[in-house]
């Protein structure tokens, strides 16, 4: 059962994250370095591992799907030590600007803490909040909001986190 749900989540993550930019928006497939065929490439991390987790309204708790994705992210980061990451926390537009900045920071930090718990060195992970400033989808209904409440792990190389 657990394996099955993980598989479903990974597939869902794959569908969501194909061809996305650093905020998770649609861009040409070359928006991230490397080929999805190369398991050590950022493209593979983004599209096959899954670079984001989603949150419930006004929540920063990681659900089972989020923990599964982050577990895979941690494995990948451990196998690809040249990468550091900035974890971007986002909120949907149903909140005030300042509160959403704080909420995005909470979400990004929840993802970071989980990655650290899986063995990733804290020095490789930094958090960033965008609040509601960079929605992934622009409609004003829950269909979009549910994808905007997210923490996205953005890879970088050669820069101290």
């Amino acid at each position: 059962m657990y394996r099955l749900s993980t598989l479903i989540i990974l597939c869902a993550g794959l569908a969501l994250s194909a061809c996305t930019d650093r905020f998770g928006g649609a861009v040409p497939a070359d928006g991230v370095a490397g080929s999805n065929a190369d398991p050590s490439s950022p493209a593979y991390f983004q599209q096959s591992v899954g670079d984001r987790v989603l949150f419930a309204v006004d929540e920063s708790t990681l659900n089972a799907a989020a923990r599964a994705t982050l577990t895979e992210q941690a494995k990948w980061l451990q196998a690809n030590q040249m990468f550091t990451a900035v974890i971007e926390g986002h909120a949907d537009e149903q909140g005030t600007r300042e509160y959403n900045l704080a909420l995005g920071a909470r979400r990004a930090s929840a993802a970071r803490e989980f990655l650290i718990s899986q063995g990733v060195a804290s020095s490789r992970l930094r958090v960033l909040t965008y609040g509601k400033e960079r929605p992934l989808e622009v409609c004003s209904t829950e269909v979009c909001y549910s994808n905007n409440r997210r923490a996205v792990t953005v890879l970088a190389t050669g820069v101290g986190a």
């Binding site: 900045l101 920071a105 990004a108 930090s109 803490e113």
Partner: peptide
């Protein structure tokens, strides 16, 4: 101002 560190603001 607000300062956010470790997820806490």
């Amino acid at each position: 101002f607000s300062l956010s560190q470790g997820g806490n603001t």
